[in-house]
Design a protein around this nucleic acid. Structure first.
Length: 321
DNA sequence: GTAGCTTTAAACAATA
DNA sequence: ATATTGTTTAAAGCTA
């Protein structure tokens, strides 16, 4: 794809430009003399192991569309351009760890100039309700399953894992899920194979003829929440920048080497959605985020990114107890 | 104001 | 017997 730039949907009075790879750092950020900022990213760990999967850390990114993770998983999966141009392709959903949940950060320090009270103002309210309808949630859950079919129990589980809001929500939403499954034409019930069946109930799948419509709804939800984004309620870029964190590593500046960029870095089908375009490349044991040359992030945004990660860490710690 | 969709709640039956 | 699953109805909220 062309190296078109996408800036965060933020206004910045005096933006600092971030270019190229983002060296890992033990400090939340590193601003060089030329004003470039480095954001720490995680060591490579794709996909996260189920054991390390920490849905609770998605608290602060609940409203981020899974679609926004598209680019992340794409680059790492090495899919063809044709695959990626296919907006009906939901392979991004199969990057389970990339979808929404984030790894808790075990090491993250707050920016010294950043007051916690400000952090709480900038970060979205924890456990607020995701923007997706139950149909979309069910759709995503089923699409994210290897067999493209799930029992209702696993649908619950997927939703809870990916949207921690439902972890603490009252039980009524499960009723709504079942109600949706039964009532919606988009989903079809399949009898389990009795010979291998464990557990009760049927399996549910997406009716192929309704799949495009479900995708469209998902896309519209994504678009709506991108276009109505702001600093307080739209942490989409945060999601993109903090997939699968495990820990930060010692600062070690790494020069950007073009040839290390993932060969399959391709077009983000939602590139005109206002989301920043992201690419990853891998060097040694680390993973780097590559922003387009003319991508600009203001200092405040960078701070928010760090704060978000901090919040995720805190949320993960609490909910993992 | 209206229609359509979604959410929520509830009741009830079937099933593991 | 109990919990879970699946169906159905009803009402309220939201949006175009």
């Amino acid at each position: 794809m062309e190296n078109s730039s996408h800036t965060l949907p933020l206004s910045c009075p005096s933006p600092a430009t971030i270019r190229g790879p983002l060296p890992l750092s033990s400090s939340p950020q590193h601003t060089s003399s030329n004003g470039r900022i480095s954001l720490p990213l995680s060591p490579i760990s794709f996909p996260p192991s189920p054991a390390s999967f920490s849905p609770a850390t998605a608290e602060s990114v609940h409203s981020c569309s899974p679609l926004s993770h598209f680019t992340v998983s794409h680059c790492l999966e090495g899919q063809s351009l044709a695959d990626q141009d296919d907006l009906t392709c939901l392979n991004w959903l199969h990057q389970r760890g990339d979808l929404l949940p984030l790894q808790p950060l075990t090491k993250m320090t707050l920016l010294p100039q950043q007051e916690p009270s400000v952090a709480s103002q900038l970060l979205p309210a924890a456990s607020s309700k995701p923007p997706y309808s139950f149909s979309s949630l069910i759709f995503m859950a089923i699409e994210d399953s290897p067999q493209k079919r799930l029992p209702v129990k696993d649908i619950y589980e997927w939703i809870v894992n990916n949207f921690p809001y439902y972890r603490t929500a009252t039980g009524g939403w499960r009723n709504s899920v079942r109600h949706n499954l039964s009532l919606s034409k988009s989903f079809r019930r399949i009898q389990r194979d009795k010979s291998q069946s464990v557990g009760k109930g049927s399996l549910w799948c997406v009716c192929p003829e309704y799949r495009p419509a479900l995708l469209e709804v998902l896309r519209k939800t994504h678009s709506y929440h991108s276009n109505n984004s702001n600093l307080l309620h739209k942490p989409a870029p945060l999601c993109l920048l903090t997939p699968d964190h495990e820990e930060l590593v010692t600062m070690e500046s790494v020069e950007y080497q073009q040839e290390e960029v993932c060969e399959d870095m391709e077009k983000d089908p939602l590139s005109d959605s206002g989301y920043i375009e992201l690419h990853y490349y891998e060097s040694q044991q680390y993973q780097y985020l590559v922003l387009p040359d003319d991508t600009e992030l203001d200092l405040e945004t960078v701070e928010i990114l760090q704060l978000d990660a901090e919040a995720q860490e805190a949320a993960g710690s609490l909910l993992d107890l």
